[in-house]
């Protein structure tokens, strides 16, 4: 096993070569994944800015309608009916 790590006396050249390759390839992968996640999160946030306004308006509308007819109904139900 020590033979493997000493690389026939060339450990100082062989291992840095493999180490640098691993560092560059893993580093690029991590940076790319992070960039993609951030960009997709921004897309979702921006789309959220536009849609909740409509959704909130619709929800407010259904809340007032329901408060007259069934004030004790389950809170999750009325919103769902009006969203589709």
């Amino acid at each position: 096993m020590t033979e493997f790590f000493t690389m026939g006396g060339y450990a100082a050249f062989v291992w840095p070569a493999y180490g640098l390759a691993a560092l560059v390839l893993i580093g690029l992968l991590v940076v790319s994944l992070k960039g993609l996640r951030e960009a997709e999160a921004t897309v979702r946030a921006l789309e959220g800015v536009r849609t909740p306004r409509r959704r909130a308006r619709a929800a407010a509308h259904s809340d007032t309608a329901h408060s007259h007819t069934a004030p004790s109904s389950a809170p999750g139900l009325p919103g769902k009916a009006s969203e589709g």
């Binding site: 390839l25 690029l28 992968l29 790319s32 994944l33 960039g35 993609l36 960009a39 997709e40 921004t42 897309v43 921006l46 789309e47 800015v49 536009r50």
Partner: peptide
């Protein structure tokens, strides 16, 4: 195959950036 994988990830990110630009504009 590493190149294909990472270039797909980066291309998807670039397309998302494009979408961000148009969304910012419309917001």
């Amino acid at each position: 195959t590493y190149f294909i994988t990472v270039v797909i990830l980066r291309l998807r990110a670039e397309l998302a950036q494009r979408k961000i630009q148009t969304l910012r504009f419309s917001v």
